[in-house]
Design a protein around this nucleic acid. Structure first.
Lengths: 389, 389
DNA sequence: GTGAAAGCGCTAACAA
DNA sequence: TTGTTAGCGCTTTCAC
């Protein structure tokens, strides 16, 4: 039972290099203001001793942690039924790693965890937070926003979007202090529906997602944007509420066929819903895409590719969303200000990747008036054409 | 631009409660040995000031971090094409949270990251590591094992299993210092194949996974266990190597039909592979399960449920695997020893969940002789019967 | 440019 | 039982 070898300290390195602790510290942290021969000796000593700075000691004085929390609120199992968060995490991780930041993962299991998360975030353990919340009435984003931690949201938060009977009386669209990254749900939906129109379809239905999620609302809005211009397009019977699941898609599709047997195209809120619709259509003897064209959303692999027929769908660059979230947060942090959010630096973000397309200013039109808020960054979507439409 | 309000320190709480810092510290850390009236006053002060301990300062002296790293080596995209890690993470997170530990997520992108991860782990930033490695020749597990951090592996590490021309000359089966959690791949495979036998099938084929992963090897071994007892069962043509993907499943299935047109059952290494097989079978005019029965592995939703026909498959409790990994690590940690692994406490682990079934001692039989190593915990699998077999 | 010294906020002996 | 005291390993003025 030998004692675990304690790792070398600054002191040890200093002794070895024959300099003071301060000098070693300088070299370790960039080496400005240390003459070359000395610096080299220090680097030698560091290498020989295998010195690694003690992060705790460093944080204690700098008050920085080089760590970012990723909060994933998980009100439902669906969250983990698709690779969405995994991809997002990957993007975040890459960006964080590139900036020598650690990723602290906070998964919540219902409301009991909210207090825990809020406490952790305001406890000053991390420099910032990346938060995913799915539901309009989720109190977590509000709690976090109030915790005074620099935060970037994944997906447009929906606080009080529609008058918000349940949520805080605050709207993302009206609170410029909120920074978020989302994909162009509305634009993607528009592209999908336009494609169906171009295909000559006229009785185009929409199976919605869970409408307490902004992504579902935005996709519905995009559908309406196009349908409003199609003669007879705003037939309310063509919109059936569903829930992002295959079973829900089946249910909705059955109801749709009941209401509108003449439907000739379906835009489903996501690929899973489309899958259910596909099955009901087949069972009803309809051919896809000949009789009814179908388009999904997400390009969730392998679902979309392996569907029968393979699904035409709207792809979003999920990994890039994650990467961008991290980038925005880090930029806000290195800004050195004491603002509680990262939006100050929004305009200085890397534009070289050309991600902020013409649709970058899209918002749910319902309540938005005046110039759009500057807090959101919207990534473009792409229509992936396969066999179903 | 007001300064960010600095959070209250122990000192402040002590002053407010009219006691010494030490007393506050005691109360905050469990409160043993502090008389009730005093303790109450301290708790008051803590609440009023909203005091949260500074983790950095605490770690600096205790050398503990209450943080665990989760390392996910990601040699291929497949990793994120299924909810496997997400579920695992959920289990880990729950257990860690229950013990007030933080989860630091380390995602690796190929070998360049190995050094980074190893450095981080030996840098003493976390108390332990939970590591997922998929490939037999992955050097990462070895590096981490050598880093001197208490570690539990997710999935049986395969170091040098088969003589290991590439990997370190070390075998998990021979190194009792290695702790891992896996599902009963071999037993699950046996159950699947036995089920097919019970169904009266005799020409039972196996489409393997990527054979440099222990899970694939173990499933193949399980298949062989049963087939060795079936007359004519060890026809090598019945085993086709595949790669855990739908496309690979298609390829393998086509080759299988070429080799053995009389096949009447297929055990696929996972659900995705089964999906591909299903498609080829259908295209070839065979009915499932009437002509050819099909069984998958993983019970990956929605793939298995939404397959046509819905897939009979072997389910593993992925979340429980994660939970158990964390539990083992934490137990090893609280052991207070300075051993570099967690296996010392293996025998003291919670047995109340009754997870260590009769198959808990299963190993790849190839090189294993003598008593099985004590380092692994194997969770049971369940055969989920649906329509395909 | 380099070193000496003063803490960051906390825990853990040790005294009282 | 409670308080006093000495650091944990590092960064950062401030002299030199």
């Amino acid at each position: 039972m030998t004692e675990a070898v304690s790792r070398p300290t600054l002191e040890a390195v200093a002794a070895r290099a024959g300099v003071s602790r301060a000098t070693v510290s300088r070299v370790v942290n960039g080496g400005d203001g240390v003459r070359e021969p000395l610096a080299e000796r220090v680097r030698q000593a560091v290498a020989e001793l295998g010195y690694v700075p003690n992060q705790a000691a460093r944080s204690l004085v700098t008050k920085r942690h080089d760590a970012v929390a990723v909060v994933i609120a998980e009100p439902e199992t669906r969250v983990f039924a698709d690779p969405f968060f995994a991809l997002q995490l990957r993007g975040i991780s890459k960006e964080l790693t590139a900036h020598d930041n650690q990723l602290v993962l906070l998964l919540t299991e219902g409301r009991d965890d909210h207090a825990r998360v809020a406490r952790y975030l305001s406890g000053g353990h991390v420099d910032g937070a990346l938060v995913f919340s799915l539901h309009l009435d989720d109190p977590l984003p509000g709690l976090i926003h109030d915790a005074g931690v620099p935060t970037v949201f994944g997906g447009r938060p929906g606080w009080g979007d529609d008058g918000g009977a349940t949520g805080p009386a605050r709207s993302a669209a009206k609170d410029p202090g909120v920074v978020y990254v989302d994909c162009d749900n509305r634009g993607g939906a528009r592209a999908a529906v336009r494609h169906l129109v171009d295909l000559g379809r006229r009785r185009i239905a929409h199976l919605t997602g869970v409408l307490d999620q902004t992504s579902a609302v935005d996709r519905l809005d995009g559908y309406r944007d196009v349908m409003d211009e199609v003669p007879g397009g705003n037939d309310p019977r063509l919109v059936v509420e569903s829930d992002f699941t295959p079973a829900g898609g089946e249910r909705a599709m059955r109801e749709l066929l009941d209401r509108c047997p003449d439907v000739d195209a379906v835009f489903a809120a996501n690929d899973l819903t489309a899958l259910g619709a596909l099955r009901v259509l087949r069972a009803s003897g309809r051919r896809v895409p000949e009789d009814v064209a179908v388009i999904g959303f997400d390009d969730m692999l392998p679902v979309a590719e392996e569907a029968d027929p393979p699904l035409t769908t709207v792809r979003q660059d999920i990994e890039e969303m994650g990467r961008l979230m991290a980038r925005l947060l880090l930029h806000g942090l290195s800004d050195g200000r004491d603002r509680t959010d990262a939006r100050d630096r929004l305009d200085a973000r890397d534009r070289k990747d050309g991600r902020d397309g013409a649709d970058g200013r899209d918002r749910t039109g319902a309540t938005a008036d005046g110039p759009p808020p500057a807090g959101g960054v919207i990534l473009p979507t792409t229509l992936i054409r396969r066999a179903s439409a």
